Simulated assay, not measured.
Amino acid sequence: MNLLFVCTGNTCRSAMAEPLMRMRLTKAGLGDQVEVRSAGVAAQAGQPASKGAQQVMNAHGLDADAHLATPLDDELVRWADLILTMSQSHKRAILERHIEAMDKTFQLKEFVDDDPESMKLFEAMGELQAEAQTKQAQFMAEHADEIESLQERYQESGGQDPTVDAELAALQQRLEACVQQESERMMELVAKLPDYDVADPYGSGQDVYDATAREISGLLDKLVERLQEEGVE
Rank of each mutant, 00 (worst) to 15 (best):
E167H: 03
G126P: 10
S204N: 10
D73Q: 12
S87K: 15
E156Y: 07
W79K: 06
L68K: 13
Q181A: 14
M23I: 01
Q129A: 02
R13L: 04
T85V: 12
A144K: 15
A43S: 03
D197R: 05
M140C: 00
Q206R: 02
L84F: 05
H98P: 02
K91G: 02
D165L: 15
G52K: 03
D63N: 15
M16W: 01
L108N: 04
R97Q: 14
Y154H: 12
L193M: 14
R153S: 01
L189S: 03
E233F: 13
Q129T: 06
L72H: 13
S118T: 15
K109P: 07
S217E: 08
A130R: 09
C12R: 03
G61L: 08
L84S: 00
M86P: 11
L108D: 02
E123D: 13
K120Q: 11
V6S: 00
A137M: 13
G9L: 10
F139I: 04
K91E: 10
Q136C: 02
M86K: 07
M21A: 12
Q107K: 11
Q173V: 05
G52N: 03
A69R: 07
M21E: 04
G9V: 12
G158M: 12
Y154D: 02
A101W: 14
K192G: 00
K135P: 05
L220W: 05
T134I: 10
K109A: 13
V112Q: 06
H67V: 06
E156S: 13
R185Q: 14
Q151W: 09
C12D: 05
E167F: 12
L219P: 07
V208S: 07
R185I: 01
P71C: 04
Q133M: 10
T70W: 09
M1S: 10
E230G: 00
T70V: 15
Y209C: 09
R185M: 11
V224I: 06
W79R: 06
L30T: 06
Q228N: 05
M140E: 14
K192Y: 01
A170G: 04
L95A: 00
L68V: 12
G31F: 04
L175S: 06
A177L: 01
F139C: 05
E131N: 09
L25N: 02
S118A: 14
G126N: 13
K135W: 05
A66N: 07
Y154R: 10
G159Y: 04
S204L: 11
A39L: 07
H90Y: 12
G52F: 08
D65W: 08
G31C: 07
E156C: 01
S157Q: 08
Q160T: 14
E35W: 11
K120D: 09
T212V: 14
Y154N: 10
A49V: 11
A124S: 13
M125Q: 08
P19W: 00
L150K: 02
D195C: 05
L193G: 03
V34Y: 05
L171N: 00
R153L: 04
K27I: 03
P71H: 14
R13V: 03
K51I: 11
E184L: 12
P116T: 00
F5E: 10
G61I: 08
L68R: 14
R24D: 02
E148K: 15
E230F: 08
E142C: 02
E188S: 10
V112K: 07
G52W: 02
F122K: 12
K120N: 01
W79T: 02
L25T: 00
P201M: 06
L25K: 03
E229G: 01
E148V: 07
F111W: 15
A132W: 12
